[in-house]
């Protein structure tokens, strides 16, 4: 199981022919206590870079972008019901959506964990 990352601090993980998407632990820490999450409905399609979801802390709202193009197949209702999960387990239980990719080659452009770590430290 390899985690890949975007420069906008989303993570992407292969699961069968789908990709699970969330926000990185680093992003969750930067946001602080998350109090609200808005996720897209299943069935919606996005192009890489589109506004896909919103996370809000006490202070501010942040957009979450589609890390790859494709169709939303499944949405994590548990994280909507309990946004604080994002601060507890951003890389696990607090996944956002599962995407059926429409352009699998976009995966190649994502960063691996080592590259992301370096990026996050310097951004």
């Amino acid at each position: 199981m390899t985690d890949l990352y975007t420069k906008d601090h989303e993570w992407v993980r292969a699961e069968g022919d789908l990709y699970v998407v969330g926000i990185s632990a680093h992003a969750a820490e930067q946001l602080g206590d998350v109090v609200f999450v808005e996720l897209p409905e299943a069935g919606k399609t996005f192009t890489k870079g589109d506004d896909m979801a919103v996370v809000e802390s006490v202070k501010a709202a942040s957009d979450v972008y589609a890390p790859i193009s494709g169709e939303i197949v499944e949405v994590n209702a548990a994280v909507v019901a309990e946004p604080a999960k994002i601060n507890e387990d951003a890389m696990g239980a607090a996944w956002f959506v599962k995407i059926k990719p429409s352009n699998a080659s976009e995966i190649d452009a994502l960063m691996d964990e080592a590259a992301y770590k370096e990026f996050a430290e310097n951004s």
């Binding site: 602080g32 206590d33 109090v35 802390s57 006490v58 202070k59």
Partner: peptide
């Protein structure tokens, strides 16, 4: 300081 390690929620 916008927040300390405790974080906005717990500080509040």
């Amino acid at each position: 300081p916008v927040q300390y390690p405790l974080g906005v929620m717990k500080e509040h």
